[in-house]
Amino acid sequence: MQTNSSETAGMTPLNVLIVDDSATMRALLYRVVGLADLPIGAIYQAPNGAEALKLLEKHDIQAVFTDVNMPVMNGMELLREMAAHDEWRDILRVIISTDGSRLRREEARELKVSLYVEKPFRPEVVRDVLCQIASVDVH
């Protein structure tokens, strides 16, 4: 978990959860999120949806970046669980996946996913997503 004490004046630090079964992708997203010029509070990581749910129950998280294809519990199952919890309704949901099919995107839209980023992606896309998140009141 990373904590970043550099806060931008007037902005509440964002706690971010990265969910991907690939340690490489988690490391990449961790780095990209950490490099964003935004007040990042903590960056949590989970290798699947089930572990992500445990972190959501324990921590105050404002944004979730999740893969779709994962063992144990996939990203869509995680998002369905999140949708069933009213206390998580304001968490911003971002999918980062190789699966860019229309069907999956429609499913994501129904599950209140704010943004769908297809792999491969340029790091600045994730940075822009974070800036977009920061520009709205997440609390």
Partner: peptide
């Protein structure tokens, strides 16, 4: 893991290009 992710991205990108409407599980 990193090389596996490379192959994962190539597979996903290829499927998106070869069949834009269908959904696949990898």
């Amino acid at each position: 893991d990193g090389v596996g992710e490379f192959a994962n991205m190539v597979c996903g990108a290829w499927l998106s290009k070869a069949n834009q409407t269908a959904s696949f599980t990898l």
